[in-house]
């Protein structure tokens, strides 16, 4: 069993308009020292997944089923108090928007010290010293002075560093970063990505990075899980997903991005239509209304949900098209077009 094992995780929200199936049967595993990138568009269920692992849907209206095993402990059926004891210490989260996820009335130091003292019986002085150390480690200049600053006195990049320091305060073994660099400028993004990579190496923690930016996952991730409409559509090693993707949605994502590392093309190759509503996920394969190859499945695309099946190269793909056909499409039609870009 891996360090983190998620099995058939379902997170559904009953609403007046129907059940929102935000996460619908997600299975993945992660070892210490490894990084998993979860990629998807807005509404694909990637953030709900991360909140679910942290147990932050407990006590709400969410209906959660499946299993989440973290280092031998099952979290879905565990009482809320037990999961709260793990949060901060065993697992921690870096949120997307540091301005709205820090308390504006308390100093940055206070917020780090608070988290540290909940899990460690130490004096305020010791905790404060720890907070100063951490701020220094994440690259905040003059940490001894900055520890008494309020969040609004920090720039965006510094706030994100402070968030990282807060998440790391108890040396968590599992770190979840939800769009950690989306709100930042590129030069600052590059600094933060470097920092996360270095810290992960140092602490040997398991890292889940959630993003819509394929560039960011290419930089950091060992494995990639592509989500669409609450389900995993493709899951495998980073190199496999980038160089031998087999799901038409992954092809679509790769074709939609203008790339700096290739010659500019005349046109981008977008995916037609827009992402589905999670209340009315299209029947069968959720991607079929947008899929250019839906007619190659003998009508099964709109009636049957495809299985997440292994390819001969060892990664998992949820698609009705026969494997040989997918391979030949990728090799002969998709890859040449993408590579001339």
């Amino acid at each position: 069993m891996s360090f983190l094992d998620v099995k058939d995780l379902k997170i559904h929200f009953p609403t007046d308009d129907g059940v929102v199936k935000s996460v619908d049967g997600l299975t993945f595993g992660l070892e210490r020292g490894q990084t998993l990138g979860i990629v998807g568009e807005s509404g694909s269920g990637k953030s709900v997944t991360s909140l679910g692992i942290l147990g932050l849907h407990k006590g709400g209206r969410a209906k959660i089923s499946g299993e989440i095993w973290l280092d031998g402990e099952e979290l879905v059926s565990a009482p809320a108090e037990q999961v709260r004891g793990l949060r901060g210490k065993k697992m921690a989260m870096i949120f997307q928007d540091p301005l709205s996820s820090m308390h504006p009335y308390y100093t940055v130091g206070h917020q780090i010290i608070e988290a540290y003292r909940i899990h460690n019986a130490v004096s305020k002085q010791v905790a404060r010293k720890h907070a100063v150390d951490l701020l220094g480690r994440v690259g905040i200049p003059e940490p001894g002075k900055r520890v008494d600053s309020y969040p609004h006195e920090f720039s965006g990049g510094m706030r994100q560093r402070a968030m990282i320091a807060m998440a790391l305060s108890c040396d968590p073994e599992l770190l979840i970063a939800d769009e950690p660099t989306t709100a930042l400028d590129v030069t600052v993004q590059a600094q933060i990505l470097d920092l996360m990579r270095d810290l992960q190496r140092e602490f040997n923690s398991a890292l889940i990075i959630i993003t819509h930016d394929l560039g960011v996952v290419a930089e950091l991730a060992d494995d990639i899980l592509v989500m669409y409409g609450g389900k995993c559509v493709e899951y495998g090693k980073t190199d496999e997903i980038f160089y031998n993707p087999e799901h038409p949605y992954t092809w679509g994502l790769l074709g939609s991005m203008p790339r700096l590392d290739r010659e500019p093309t005349e046109r981008l190759l977008p995916i037609k239509g827009s992402p589905p509503s999670l209340i009315n996920v299209p029947p069968g394969c959720a991607f079929h209304p947008r899929c250019p190859y839906a007619d190659r499945t003998e009508g099964r695309a709109s009636t049957e949900v495809p299985d997440l099946a292994p390819t001969e190269r060892g990664h998992l793909v949820r698609c009705h098209m026969p494997r040989t056909e997918r391979r030949s499409l990728w090799e002969n039609e998709i890859k040449p077009v993408l590579e001339t870009q």
Partner: peptide
């Protein structure tokens, strides 16, 4: 130069080869 080299490239193999300019601090 720094801006261009900071853009993450969606090519996992390139991350090892690419030389990056790292700017310090904020604007």
């Amino acid at each position: 130069n720094a801006l261009l080299s900071a853009v993450p490239v969606p090519d996992p193999k390139a991350r090892k080869e690419r030389e990056r300019i790292r700017l310090k601090g904020d604007v």
